[in-house]
Design a protein around this nucleic acid. Structure first.
Length: 425
RNA sequence: GGAGAGGUGCCAGAGUGGUCGAAUGGGCUCGCCUGGAAAGCGAGUGUACCGGUAACGGUACCAAGAGUUCGAAUCUCUUCUUCUCCGCCA
């Protein structure tokens, strides 16, 4: 959510930015309502001041056993007017919030302008140490490998829950767990993140805090009886750890990483990239979240990206890092880098991580603040998060790149101690 | 799930219709004292919004929401939540 004052003072910029992000919120209407809002507040406040003063007078009269009936009658009408004004104010603020919640975050000046993914800019590319293209020759795609090796049972997953809910079996289950543990250990031991283990179901206030609600309600699984939502990413519970808190400046930056299962309905994307692991309703992910001082957020974004890239480098998987153009950047983000791994079978880059600086957009929504120093006025923190990483597409790349000519998988060295085996098949 | 008791400022804790943005104690900050420190003494110590260049003024907030009243931390209702006991359970 943007600051009302910011919208008021930068109306044209906010409108242009909204258009660039393919939204058309009624900014002019918002500004007009804000004017009305302030007028109401002013009027109601003055009346309340009168009421407070006269109420004191009434108390004094009553104490002195004098008659206060005239004043009481007068205040009755004042109170009625106040009630009307408060009601109108509530209505106006509701309308304003309805608009404000749909105004996307303003892109950082370093973000290129573009319509869609074609406007993104590749900023880094690393070849894998073990790419199976070229002389080694790619043989099977990940789904075939998984099936032939008996490490994922898509059919039974579908029987249990539906398509998009894979059942990992045997060494597949162990490899999945190994990847997650490997990534968590790296982020905690080497990158300075503090691990947390979070609830996977959250309430509406948390979903609103990180921006999933109200805009993306259709993408979430809900437990209607209990008004709970299955998290689409650990970003939601981790960011909401500090909702409504005022943090000490000395504690910043706060860096958390968390494992979670992620649940996404993926409504509207049926049949698109749904083969095997490419798009799932439930998957596992390690998430990194940072709470930082505003002046540090862009350098923290760079290290966040490097932390995510480090995983791929250690695993020797070819990847590239792209800077998203404004038209492809998410609603809440001011600047986003995506990490993509290469799938030789798909002949495509697959997104495995998205690292964003939200500046104070989420912090304002979730009301997460800090004091720069003792006694200073609270300011909003900047929040950042990035996957580090999501496993399904990582698994795709890993299987395809590390397959041998005879159809086995040679586990990359850093994972072996986690797996307890060197070969699958 | 059943029964009971609570939710007040950074923390503890008083306050049952007007004199309460809120006693008192602790913490913290600054100052005095000291060779330095402790103790002691003194002062200060919430957030948001509206108006104002500012100083400042006003309004709101005692879990959240609704209500009663001229006036609510205080009375009523609803919700959330914490604790204790019982039941169930990995």
């Amino acid at each position: 959510m943007l600051d009302t004052k910011f919208i008021r003072e930068n109306t044209e910029r906010v409108i242009q930015n909204s258009h660039a992000k393919h939204t058309q919120p009624d900014i002019h209407g918002f500004v007009k309502m804000d004017e009305r809002r302030r007028a109401i507040i002013q009027e109601a406040q003055d009346l309340k001041a009168t009421r407070n003063n006269v109420s004191d007078e009434i108390a004094r009269l009553k104490k002195a056993k004098e008659n206060a009936d005239a004043l009481i009658a007068e205040m009755k009408t004042v109170s009625d007017t106040i009630k009307q004004l408060d009601e109108e104010l509530r209505g106006v603020e509701e309308q304003m919030e309805h608009i404000a919640l749909y105004v996307p975050n303003v892109s950082h000046e370093s973000v290129p302008h573009g319509k869609d993914a074609s406007g993104n800019i590749e900023i880094r590319r690393k070849d894998g140490v073990n790419t199976c293209e070229g002389e080694r020759g790619f043989r099977k795609d990940h789904a075939t490998l998984a099936k032939d090796l008996g490490i994922v049972d898509f059919e039974r997953g579908a029987k249990i829950s539906g398509s998009g809910f894979p059942l990992y079996t045997g060494k597949g289950a162990r490899l999945e767990r190994a990847l997650l543990n490997f990534m968590l250990d790296r982020h905690t031991a080497e990158n300075g993140y503090t691990e947390v283990f979070v609830p996977f179901l959250v309430n509406a206030a948390s979903m609103r805090g990180t921006g999933q609600l109200p805009k993306f309600a259709d993408d979430m699984y809900t437990c209607t009886d209990d008004e709970l939502y299955l998290i689409p990413t650990a970003e939601v519970p981790v960011t909401n750890i500090y909702r409504d808190d005022i943090l000490a400046g000395a504690d910043l930056p706060i860096k958390h990483c968390a494992y979670s299962a992620c649940f996404r309905r993926e409504a509207g994307s049926y049949g698109k990239d749904t083969r095997g692991f490419l798009r799932l309703h439930q998957f596992n992910k390690i998430e990194m979240v940072k709470f930082v001082r505003p002046e540090d957020s862009y350098s923290e974004l760079e290290t966040l990206v490097r932390d995510a890239e480090g995983i791929l480098e250690v695993l020797g998987i070819p990847y590239r890092t792209i800077l998203l153009c404004d038209g492809d950047t998410g609603f809440s983000s001011a600047k986003t880098y995506d990490l993509e791994v290469w799938s030789p079978a798909e002949q495509k880059w697959l997104e495995v991580s998205s690292c964003s600086n939200f500046e104070d957009f989420q912090a304002r929504r979730a009301n997460i603040r800090f004091r720069a120093e003792h006694g200073a006025k609270p300011e909003f923190v900047h929040t950042l998060n990035g996957s580090g990483l999501a496993t399904p597409r990582l698994m795709v790349a890993l299987l395809e790149h590390y397959q041998t000519e005879d159809g086995r998988i040679h586990i990359p060295e850093p994972l072996r101690s986690y797996c307890g085996f060197e070969w699958i098949g």
